[in-house]
């Protein structure tokens, strides 16, 4: 299709523009990571050069490891993210199945009700959420965060998953029914395995905002024992603001796990965005 447009000049220009923007996107991240491996003098003397034998130093990482309780924070973030993800996917898929599979009175209304949360951010209910958590004694527990993130993730999960569940073959489900499978078995044994790719996409979408959130950990669970990595990093960075080695190392440690996960799942994520956007 692009016969008329494939002049070499055009392609060079396109690459030049894209390389420039890629550099802008990656440069700050790269500067932080390479400087985290340098001595203090080298960080300031030549911020843009790579560490060499003389300027290499891990002193920042040592500070982070001894000062902040990053393993605990990391563990908290992991528990919150994995548990929320599990509930979003399980409850979301169940509700999506009910909406996609059965005709019952109030079905469209129910779909609309659940879709409200896609546009209205849960953050606006914070004042009352905090009161709810205080009343139920859940402040400074990971449970509070898991509940909030489950509620936050459900609307989009239900919306996307029900679109996919409508595509599951009717014959397959009816064959299952004739074989005497219960509706629960049909859902768990037949439908769920078939929508696994969609579940992965929803999972990635759900996971990133939960892992990165600062607002709810700050408000609902700021205690030392329940800090997530994002909140822990925020506080650590504030305390060590003059210790450049420590700050750069902490930032690098916060970036790397997300970056690695992203590189593993980027194909899934991009496919999810592009598939969802076609509509």
């Amino acid at each position: 299709m692009s016969r008329a447009r494939s002049s070499p000049w055009r392609s060079v220009a396109a690459h030049a523009a894209l390389i420039t923007y890629t550099a802008i996107a990656l440069f700050p991240v790269i500067v932080i990571v390479i400087n985290s491996f340098k001595t203090r003098q080298a960080i300031f003397r030549s911020p843009l050069s790579l560490p060499d034998a003389e300027t290499f130093s891990l002193v920042g990482y040592q500070t982070v490891m001894t000062q902040g309780d990053f393993f605990l924070y990391f563990q908290n973030s992991l528990i919150v993210t994995v548990a929320s993800l599990f509930f979003v996917l399980l409850f979301g898929a169940m509700a999506a199945f009910a909406l996609a599979e059965y005709r019952f009175r109030g079905n469209p209304l129910m779909g609309l009700y659940l879709a409200l949360g896609i546009m209205i951010p849960i953050r606006l209910g914070t004042v009352a959420i905090l009161q709810l958590m205080v009343a139920s004694g859940l402040v400074n527990t990971l449970t509070a965060l898991i509940l909030v993130y489950t509620a936050q993730g459900l609307p989009l999960a239900v919306f996307i998953l029900s679109e996919f569940m409508k595509q599951v073959s009717e014959d397959l489900k009816n064959a299952g029914r004739i074989d005497g499978l219960s509706e629960y078995r049909i859902f768990f044994r037949l439908v769920l395995p078939l929508v696994r790719p969609a579940m992965a996409t929803v999972g990635v979408f759900t996971m990133i905002p939960i892992w990165n959130d600062l607002w709810f950990p700050l408000i609902l669970a700021p205690a030392e024992a329940t800090k997530t990595i994002t909140l822990g990093a925020q506080i650590f960075l504030g305390q060590f603001v003059t210790n450049w080695n420590a700050v750069l190392s902490a930032l690098s440690l916060a970036i790397l796990p997300v970056l690695i996960l992203y590189l593993i799942f980027s194909r899934q994520l991009i496919r999810g965005i592009t598939a969802g956007a076609v509509k």
């Binding site: 849960i122 009352a128 459900l154």
Partner: peptide, 29 residues
């Protein structure tokens, strides 16, 4: 058909209690 209710209940419960009610609670406050 109880299974429909069972499929919908958990999502509806968490969503309503943790998101919708607090939203209205905030408006009320």
């Amino acid at each position: 058909r109880w299974h429909i209710a069972v499929f919908l209940a958990p999502a509806l419960l968490v969503y309503t209690v943790v998101m919708i009610l607090p939203l209205f609670g905030t408006l009320q406050l």
